[in-house]
Amino acid sequence: MNARCFTVFVSVLFFGFPPAIYTQSLTLTGLQNLNFGDTIFPGINKTVARTDGNAAKFMISGDINKEVRITFSLPTVLELTGNTMSIHFSSTDAAYNTLEFGQSTATAFDPNNAVITRLGLDGKLYIWLGGTVAPTHTQPAGTYANDIVLEVQYTGN
């Protein structure tokens, strides 16, 4: 191998190779919507805790014990034709756990920032999300809604 070839080889070896090759795909499922119910009073904030039965719930499935980065795209308002209602998410409104029924003991995190954690020994990870809506005193009546998007990717670790 001449010098030129060696240089290319070293470049590939140290810069081109991915850190790992995973054999199982990563899947993500939204199991439940975030539901503030049908009794939001104008002028009174309403909160759904991450531990509440009405919190949003997600399931991630992939390679056992592999690290993933979790990122939310969160709305700032819920919408009803021509009207909006503020929604916000506190720094402890999200939580994850490798146990499906571990909502109450899940580890809290800030849904406004990405978090990195590992899939469980069965390749699963569960995420819950609460939030707070803040209707004004004159908030028009009706059902407001908007999308919450969850994005997941392997970190390579």
Binding site: G30, N35, F36, F58, G142, A145, D147
Partner: peptide
Amino acid sequence: QITTTVTASGTVLTP
């Protein structure tokens, strides 16, 4: 990256 979407919703009473 993979993504999924759920809905946040709630019904406001008459002001």
